[in-house]
């Protein structure tokens, strides 16, 4: 028996066999993910200008100057504001929409499709349309505000409202996505739990807090991670709507990376920003995973 087991083990544990199974997955991972990350980390220690074939190793100089640069902290703050400003509304509004649409009614399929459609529309196209909506003179947004008797805003043309404008576009785009996930999560909550709750005396808000929310917590967790990563990676809408302006008011870390690398040709410092972003994303995800142990119930 034990002889047979060893033989088996030897046959399947041999390196070529293992590689045969692992390589198809590993090769793309190495080529498109691990190598670029390592290469970026390497570049962040150089003074490469993106064009010259030569560069020097400058070690931590890029990081040192980055951490001394007020523009970096400003971009970091904008990233936090943008991420928080999109994350919570996307999740909360997505859940509210799902709760409204979970019961099928005539035409509910069409409503769901309309709400989901921004997610499958290219962000660039969406952003162009929104840039028209945000036009100070004659834009739909201001027309609505004026009709409601409110003061028109400058939207993407003012550093006071530009971030809000970009956040609104981003929420509008991802709302349908979170709604679809919540819809399927709500449909999966066993009806018996609500019935047991009804007999125990849980209904209305109590039922929502004690039964619905914990039952859909894995979806909330998933959406919070995905939305956070999407927000940290937001680029298209910023590029089309504001190009990081006015006066840098919508410059996030990713946009700063773009500006440093491809406008200022300082690839060394740009990749240093990218490395900081990787650490930031990993750190935030880790925190979410840790915290989730307390509130996510599988």
């Amino acid at each position: 028996m034990s002889k047979k087991k060893t033989k088996y083990k030897r046959r399947y544990d041999s390196l070529p066999t293992v590689l045969l199974f692992v390589l198809p997955a590993l090769i793309p991972l190495i080529v498109f993910w691990i190598y670029p990350i390592l290469r970026s980390i390497y570049l962040s220690f150089t003074n490469w200008d993106y064009i010259s074939p030569t560069y020097k190793i400058v070690w931590f100089k890029n990081y040192a100057s980055l951490f001394r640069n007020p523009r970096f902290y400003e971009a970091l703050w904008h990233t936090v504001v943008f991420t928080a400003g999109t994350l919570f509304p996307t999740i909360i509004l997505g859940l509210i929409l799902a709760l409204l649409l979970v019961k099928n009614f005539r035409g509910s399929g069409i409503v769901k499709f309309i709400l989901f459609s921004p997610w499958i529309t290219p962000t660039v196209a969406i952003s162009i349309v929104w840039s028209w909506i945000y036009k100070v003179d004659g834009g739909i947004a201001n027309t609505i505000l004026t009709n409601l008797g409110m003061t028109p805003l400058k939207w993407i043309n003012s550093s006071d409202t530009a971030m809000l404008s970009v956040i609104i576009v981003t929420i509008w785009k991802s709302l349908g996505y979170s709604m679809i996930f919540y819809l399927s999560a709500l449909e999966r909550v066993p009806g018996e739990l609500y019935e047991a709750g009804a007999l125990d005396g849980a209904f209305g808000w109590r039922q929502f807090v004690d039964i619905t929310l914990p039952s859909i917590s894995p979806t909330t967790f998933f959406l919070s991670i995905i939305t956070m990563v999407n927000s940290l990676q937001a680029y298209d809408q910023i590029q089309v709507l504001t190009q990081g302006g006015p006066a840098g008011s919508t410059r996030t870390l990713l946009y700063m990376y773009y500006q440093l690398g491809f406008q200022e040709f300082n690839m060394g410092q740009a990749t240093a920003v990218a490395v900081v972003m990787i650490i930031l994303t990993a750190g935030l995800s880790l925190i979410q995973f840790k915290v989730s142990e307390k509130w996510v119930h599988y």
Binding site: P190, E192, L193, E195, A196, L199, D200, A202, F203, P214
Partner: peptide, 16 residues
């Protein structure tokens, strides 16, 4: 149901 003072045990237990 909550005012009937009746308790029920479900087929799939329906535990939270």
């Amino acid at each position: 149901p909550q005012n009937r003072d009746i308790a029920m045990v479900f087929q799939n237990y329906a535990l939270y």
